[in-house]
């Protein structure tokens, strides 16, 4: 194809012939001339006014990418950026999230009582989780929170790194390999008074069920001794699932659990296990009620329940369907089920 492409510069200098001056060809001729002028004006200036070309015989040093976990997010925590971010979060993100997800928050008082800085951990099923969680945090925590985000996904391009660091206060966290640097950075920030929002599953769940937790996620809390607040988010999976392209409105439930305090000398592995149980209990609470969840936790089956049945994909998806907020959007509750509360529809099937 390239061979067939004509060089627009070729005809640029030619004036349209007088006989056809009025015709359409004259118009295109003028356009072509203007384009050529523009091209000449925007062409990089030659050396020494412009940058020199690199001689082919000299090896070029590989520049540092400054991306991934090497990306420096300090700029995003400076006051003017924080102020701008707070404006966007409070005036755009929060209303949008409330419109889209209409979150029902259980245990909001636990967040109010928490003493910053804290480490907030949550299950992860959708890109919507971060804005949803940020929008239910109390103001004093929200405006001083950094979000641990996958270095390989959110920080792999310069524009993305700028965007997420600026918009969400994201910091890169390496999830695929051991990286002392990113954990150290997160720990330092918590020590510095910043709350940390982290999704310890290390990525969105493909089907909505809880996955195994990454131990590195507990390190900042274990090292600093700051409380960890587990939060369970239900329903975001339906708004925008992993791999989904369409956003649908749905109800979401946010269940906040009691803070966990790392014990003296407790290692990350142990904290991680406690965290997993806490998150699973919250998941059960989200599906049923607080008391039932307690009793299940006492029986010790909670974590397995939260990971879902060991069955075919449809049965895992099917078993997930029973949450109260689910599938209520367009049910005609008046006729088939005879009661005013659309949520009974889903409850009844359990």
């Amino acid at each position: 194809m390239t061979a067939a492409r004509r060089d627009p510069d070729l005809g640029a200098g030619r004036q349209p012939t007088g006989r056809r001056a009025w015709s359409a060809s004259a118009v295109t001729g003028v356009g072509r001339l203007a384009r050529a002028r523009l091209r000449r004006a925007t062409r990089p200036a030659p050396f020494p006014w412009g940058a020199p070309t690199w001689p082919g015989t000299v090896a070029r040093p590989v520049p540092s990418s400054g991306l991934g976990d090497e990306y420096d997010t300090a700029w995003a925590r400076r006051y003017p950026v924080r102020l701008a971010r707070a404006m966007v979060t409070d005036n755009l993100t929060r209303p949008a999230v409330h419109l889209l997800a209409s979150p029902l928050v259980r245990g909001a008082e636990l967040l109010d009582m928490a003493e910053a800085p804290v480490v907030i951990v949550a299950n992860h099923t959708s890109h919507l989780d971060t804005p949803l969680l940020l929008s239910v945090l109390p103001d004093r925590i929200r405006h001083r929170t950094v979000v641990a985000a996958a270095a390989d996904h959110f920080f792999d391009r310069r524009w993305k790194a700028h965007l997420w660091a600026g918009l969400l206060g994201a910091i890169p966290l390496e999830r695929n390999r051991v990286s002392r640097r990113s954990v150290d950075e997160a720990t330092a920030l918590v020590e510095d008074g910043w709350s940390l929002l982290i999704f310890p599953e290390g990525g969105r769940s493909p089907d909505g069920w809880q996955q195994e937790l990454h131990r590195a996620a507990s390190l900042p809390a274990a090292r600093t001794g700051r409380p960890v607040i587990p939060v369970h988010l239900a329903g975001t999976h339906r708004i925008l699932p992993k791999g989904g392209t369409r956003v649908r409105r749905a109800r979401t439930t946010v269940v906040v659990g009691a803070p966990l305090y790392p014990e003296d000398g407790e290692d990350a592995r142990h904290l991680s296990a406690r965290l997993e149980t806490a998150l699973a209990t919250l998941a059960a609470e989200s599906r049923t009620d607080w008391w039932t969840a307690r009793r299940q936790a006492a029986a010790g089956t909670t974590v397995q329940d939260a990971r879902g049945p060991d069955a075919s994909p449809w049965r895992r998806a099917w078993a997930l369907g029973g949450t109260p907020a689910a599938w209520t959007g367009e049910h005609d509750s008046s006729s088939a089920h005879g009661d005013g509360d659309p949520r009974r529809w889903a409850v009844r099937r359990d």
Binding site: R238, P241, G243, P313, W314, A317, W318, L320, G321, A326, W327, G329, E330
Partner: peptide, 14 residues
């Protein structure tokens, strides 16, 4: 079919 069935089956090609 309702969203519940669609979301449980369609993503897996079932």
């Amino acid at each position: 079919l309702g969203d519940r069935i669609y979301d449980a089956f369609a993503p897996h090609g079932l």
